[in-house]
Structures are given as C-alpha cells and as structure tokens.
Simulated scan of single mutants.
Amino acid sequence: MNGKISRRTLLGTGSFAALMGVVGCAPVQTKYKPSGQGIVDVVVPYGTGGGTDTWARFITPYFADLQSGVDRYQVENVPGGESITGTNAFIRAGVTNGQQTLVASATTYFQSMLGQSTVEFDFARMEPLALNGTGAVLWTSTESGITSVEDLIGSSHQYRYGGMSASGLDLVPLLALEAMGANIRGVFGMEGRGPTRLAVQRGEADLDFQTTSSYLSQVQPMVDSGDAVPLFAVGSLQDGEVVRDTNLPDIPTFAEVFAGLGSHTEQQQLAYNAFQAFVVPGFFYQKGLWANAGTDAAVVEDYGRMVAALNEDASFIEETKDALGGYELVSGADARGDFRRALQLDEEVLAFTKHLLEDKYDAVLD
C-alpha cells in the first residue's frame, strides 16, 4: 500500500470543469463529464484546506489502491451556501455508477435536517459508502469557577459558550446544555476550534467543545496541570447504544449526565431528544463518502469490502491514527440504518430546535 500512496501526492483540485464552470450560473446544469478513465471524481462542498477537504484528500488514495481499474480519485471543491451549493450540484448530476462521489460532513447533514429551503438533497435516500466518526468533549477552564457538570445544572449564573455557528456542530453541545437546564449565552463567529479553545484560556468564554484529537493534544495537558476540567463527552455508538469513548474512558457521556438528572422538564426532554438525533450524524458518523440514491448495489458492496480490508490492515491503522482521530472507518451499509433513523426528526423536536436557534441564538434559518 505505501508504495502506491507515496507515488501519489494528495491531489489538488483538477478538471471537473463541467460542474465547476456552472456552479455560479443559474440554473446549474446537470450534465456531468467524467475526468477520465481510471479516475473517480469526488465533490467536496467546502473550500480547500478545511477538515472535510483534508479528510477527503487523505482517505481516497487508500480506496484507489484497492479498486480494480481505478488509478486515483480527483477531488473537486465546490464551496458555497454552507455546503449546500456543491451538494445540490452533485445530486443534480445524478451519477449512480460510482464514477462520481460526494464527501459530506456534519454541517451538510444539518442543513437537510433543519429543513433549509435551498436544500435539494436527502441523506435518508442517498447511499453512504464509508463513514468516519469522532468524539468530542465539553470542557472549561478552572478560572471559570466551574468545577463539575453539576455547577451548570439549574445555575442562576449565565455562562458563555464560545463557538463558530449555532446551527453547525455547536448545535450538539448547545442542545446538551439546554437539556441540562444550563444558563448559557452563546458567543459565535469564531473561525475554528483553535480560537474557541483560546477564548476559554483567555477568559473570553467559559465553555468550549473540542473533538477528541484536539482535546487530547491541546486540552488534556491543561487538565493534567490542573488548569482545565472536562465536563462530558459525546461517547461512541456501539451496537446502537451510546457508550464511553475508548479514547476518553474516564469522561462520562452526556447520556450518563442526563440520566443522572432524575426529573426534568418537557423542554429538557425535547432538547435531549434533539441532542440524540443530531449527535449521530454530527459526531458518530461525522465525515463520509457518499453516492446518489439508486447507486448500483455492486458499488456499495465494493466499498463495504474495502472498508473491511482497511480496518484489518495494521499499517493503515497506524498511518491514519491522527487523521482519523483514533476511530476506524465504518461501512456505509452497516451504518445506514442508524444514520437514517437519526434523520427522522419528530416534528415537535424539529420545531423546538429551530425555535431555540432562531429565538435564543439568532440563527438565520430559511
């Protein structure tokens, strides 16, 4: 495997001109022209250099190594509309033979779940090919005065949560905090998890949410020195049940925290139900390679075979330890049921979530 990977640098944007050339036009055309024989085109509906783009460029050469007749994957960035523009274009192209795929992430899933009017895609009908989850931890600085999760429950003091966007990945911890009855004020517009972490360190925010890899490398040293406190983790999904993350075995899951509350209000239960729905695509299956609805069954089965082979390859596991955050790939066929169930939001839960975003956090939903 290593020899073939080393001969291919992780490829930059290429010649998917048929799609790129029309994204800014109205209407977007649906005609798709493949990049060439032996090339699988990959639409990434985000700009270059971000987490999803990096994941796409890292993981796809491994699939190319295992596919007969495939020389490489050609990553094409089609950003815009919080990932809606590129994903809509992928759906309109309607390719179902495996020659064109999509890399999507939690933000893309959330756009569909929240019913954004410009969305033309439905992940409940699309075919997941390979998925990669991650964990995350809500933490605080000891300077905040918060010593444990109990300090947040029913507190009259208003704490500041620092984030990027209330309707993005930050929605998951916001729903958890709402389910706890915490008194929270959101401070949004930060450009990444680095700035949100620094905001807590500087005392500009009290709470921050970091993915497992960032938590272990950037926050755990502060915990060890007594300068930070972990409050809860999202956990991992195992056989349909949320369990403690093996990468974070000493940190309770939010499911444990909520169970320990005892009594709770109807609003808190709605918030918890929403948390359970959004955390599945948001973290347990955060990034993934996707195909259109109606994709040939042989294509789906082939990716299942490749995922199984990679997860049994010791060199792959070692090489991808940092890039995949210590979490193995999941076959789309295996995860399809859990993923689709999470997308089936109860109308009352959806209304509650949209009301929370619009009225409490001034999020613009259309």
Rank of each mutant, 00 (worst) to 15 (best):
R160E: 09
D227R: 10
S141Q: 08
N292S: 10
T52E: 09
D359M: 11
H264A: 05
D359H: 12
A342D: 02
G36K: 09
V137F: 09
S15G: 14
Y46P: 04
R305G: 08
P61D: 13
F58C: 05
G186V: 05
V43D: 13
I184M: 04
A166V: 06
F339N: 07
K287G: 09
S165Y: 13
R305L: 04
D71P: 08
E241T: 14
G3C: 08
Y159P: 03
V330M: 12
M113C: 05
A93W: 10
V149D: 03
M222D: 15
L114N: 07
T265R: 08
T118H: 14
Y327E: 03
Q269P: 08
A255P: 04
V172P: 01
D322C: 00
M1Y: 05
Q201D: 06
L310F: 06
V243M: 07
R197E: 10
L324R: 12
G226Q: 03
F283E: 08
A308R: 08
G189E: 06
V28Y: 01
Y46H: 10
F123E: 02
A26Q: 12
V280K: 06
S167K: 09
G80A: 11
A333P: 06
N311W: 02
L324F: 15
T265W: 01
A124N: 03
E127M: 11
Q158F: 01
D250E: 13
L248A: 05
V95M: 03
E347N: 11
S217L: 07
A277M: 06
R72F: 05
W290N: 04
Y32L: 04
